[in-house]
């Protein structure tokens, strides 16, 4: 029997073509496992010193030792606290201010150019200033993460609010809605899914500032542990710390995505 050619399926490499869940998982696995294998193979070849590139096994044993005897959970806990505090503090100010920037043109003129300007200032360079202004306590680490996160977050929030279709606002106006009602019942609910995405993305930013924040007189935390390992040339511990931060980030990201689907089912409908 000859094969029917009428219903030729688009191949895997069709531009913007469909991809089955099975294929997706397959490609994702290849993308994740290949670097690991390359890493392993490179170490097995024996060309490189252990200090330059530790083996995956060495990183794993270092991780287990960190977990059992070197108080890994305490490091994770304090780092998690710093990241969350800095990020939540950012959100506390960025959400209302961003809402006003995206809603009222005078507020936009007042704040947006300033925020755009500060955004480009390197957070690391603020460390000495933060030490003078805030000290070297926990608050200093939180402040660094805040500086790194806030100015990006506020502009993203403003953009989310600006993206609410004008017709949604005008329809409410011609139904007699007041300014306050439009903010509460149109702008906020309409922008909410985008705002949750912004919170998810900026939590990633907050994590990237962790190591920088723990440069400031820290004696615990994942970032601090990585910095200390650098001093003792413990490359395996540096690897373990970096990978761990990556995994925590991945986990919170997935948590946010799950929350998004639960909270906004209407935004996830297949058409």
């Amino acid at each position: 029997m000859s094969r029917s050619r009428q219903t030729a399926r688009p191949g895997l490499w069709a531009i913007r073509g469909p991809l089955s869940a099975r294929h997706y998982t397959g490609f994702a696995m290849i993308g994740l496992v290949t670097p690991l294998l390359l890493w392993w193979g490179l170490v097995e070849l024996g060309w490189l010193s252990k200090v330059f590139l530790p083996s995956p096994l060495a990183v794993w044993t270092r991780f287990l030792r960190w977990l059992t005897t070197d108080r890994l959970m305490a490091d994770v806990g304090i780092s998690l606290y710093r990241v969350m505090a800095g990020w939540a503090l950012s959100a506390l100010f960025a959400l209302p201010l961003g809402l006003f920037i995206g809603t009222f043109r005078p507020v936009q003129a007042l704040l947006e150019p300033l925020m755009e300007f500060v955004r480009y200032m390197p957070a690391v360079a603020f460390i000495p200033l933060v030490m003078i202004w805030v000290g070297i306590e926990e608050s200093a680490k939180v402040a660094i993460i805040f500086i790194g996160t806030f100015f990006q977050m506020i502009l993203m929030v403003a953009e989310d609010v600006r993206r609410v279709p004008t017709a949604q606002i005008e329809a409410a106006q011609t139904m007699g809605a007041t300014r306050m009602e439009i903010i509460e019942q149109v702008l906020l609910p309409s922008a909410k899914p985008a705002l949750v995405d912004t919170l998810r993305i900026t939590l990633g930013f907050a994590w990237t500032y962790l190591v920088v924040a723990e440069l400031v007189a820290a004696n615990s935390g994942l970032g601090y542990a990585i910095l200390k390992a650098q001093r003792f040339l413990q490359t395996d511990k540096i690897f373990a710390g970096i990978i761990l931060i990556g995994l925590i980030g991945l986990l919170t990201d997935q948590l946010f995505r799950w929350l998004h689907r639960k909270a906004f089912p209407w935004a996830h409908l297949k058409h």
């Binding site: 017709a167 011609t174 609910p189 309409s190």
Partner: peptide, 15 residues
């Protein structure tokens, strides 16, 4: 509210 408007699109509240 005495003059309600119907737009071409994007005016419904998707949530």
């Amino acid at each position: 509210a005495d003059r309600a408007m119907v737009f071409q699109h994007y005016s419904l509240y998707p949530w």
